[in-house]
Nucleic acid binder design. Structure first.
Lengths: 217, 217
DNA sequence: ATCCATTTGTGCGTATGTATC
DNA sequence: CGATACATACGCACAAATGGA
């Protein structure tokens, strides 16, 4: 079971590019250098570059637009894969699945949160409070807040699932709020603060039910 | 935004191969034809075949062994991806995530099951009862039983996740039972039958808690 | 134990098509 | 229209690993 120390040029390059993407050196939406430029840069043929890019395009991390350039689509393989899978399902099923995840993560967060998690969560909540004016910023910071709760659950599997799912759902959420408006601000804020308190108190069941209420607002 | 009239040879071939795999024409473990043979068969260059294979290797559906051949690893992209993701996580986290899924699917199954679902579930239970003697068969038929409950939940997102996760967990389960033995047969059977009844009665909460108990046996 | 045919891995060069600006 | 840039596809050559004679 010895593993090869040598990596093919293609894989080396694919890895380096993936690192640039995951580390946000090339954020989502970035137009990356042309194949020829990359070929010069890495001192290989354009063909080799193509194979590397192809492998990332195949899994949905990159998107090539003929006559234009190559763009970053997602920040990781798992996220890209979930995107594809979720797009095949009905929207209501995705939302249902996400509701269950959110509830369970709140439960686990109350159980497993550390003092450090609490500080991060409180901070994320402050940020969210300061950005209630702009809808787009609100959705963004609210997402960040809930993501921190998910992280405090300390379960990497559920966390990855949640992360992939929410980034997919964001667009739906934003357009929904834009249409319907955001009128439950006080109730929402109250529930959020109760949720934080429940997590502080490590009251798992209360956290779970509060999370459920927040979602169905 | 009109694009998709013509599919590239590479993608056509990748699709055809994927179909052979998903349809079990080439089951897991199969050694598929050599690149040269496929090239002749599809009347394209070996390079084109390689690109198609490469795309499936990349997502973990195929595995190439230099000097030997190319083998089927998983029966679908999503399954392959979950495999990879789960292998990075701690075992306890995987189990925790699976518990969460099992509970929620039982809840939803009680809510959404149709008469037809019930018939299938009852049948799967009978099959499981008839195969208690052989441990390997027991794990297999028990898995099939729970899979039918998952299906009855009528949520494709959670169902796909569950399916991918259980196929990963099977090996662990089997080895655990082989080591520890299977001594809780009566209790297990009793709980399973109560679960079926709860689903018949559409008692979501009871189903959920019974599912939780069954897992922690 | 050695050799050898087979099979995949790697890399390059080239040609042509097509989309965008 | 033309320049640019990606898309597709083929052919070739050699390297490296494997399995079997």
């Amino acid at each position: 079971m010895k593993k090869p120390v040598r990596l093919s040029l293609t894989k080396q390059i694919a890895n380096e590019i993936e690192i640039k993407i995951e580390s946000k050196s090339w954020p989502i939406g970035t137009k990356i250098p042309t194949e020829s430029q990359l070929a010069k840069q890495f001192e290989v043929s354009r063909n080799t570059i193509r194979e590397a890019l192809q492998s990332l395009i195949q899994v949905g991390v990159l998107e090539a637009r003929p006559g234009d350039g190559t763009y970053v689509l997602a920040s990781g393989k798992f996220e890209a894969n979930m995107y594809h899978q979720l797009s095949l399902a009905k929207a209501e099923e995705v939302i249902e699945a996400r509701c269950f995840l959110e509830k369970n993560l709140a439960y686990l967060a109350a159980q497993n949160r550390t003092a450090n998690d609490l500080a991060i969560i409180k901070n994320a909540w402050q940020v969210r409070l300061e950005n209630q004016a702009d809808l787009e910023r609100l959705v963004e910071t609210d997402g960040a807040f809930h993501l921190e709760i998910a992280r405090a659950a300390h379960n990497s599997v559920l966390f990855e699932l949640y992360q992939a799912m929410t980034s997919y759902i964001y667009q739906v959420l934003l357009s929904k709020l834009t249409d319907e408006g955001y009128h439950n601000a006080e109730l929402s804020n109250k529930l959020h603060e109760e949720l934080i308190q429940a997590i502080i108190d490590q009251d798992s069941h209360l956290s779970e039910s509060l999370a459920a209420k927040i979602i169905t607002l």
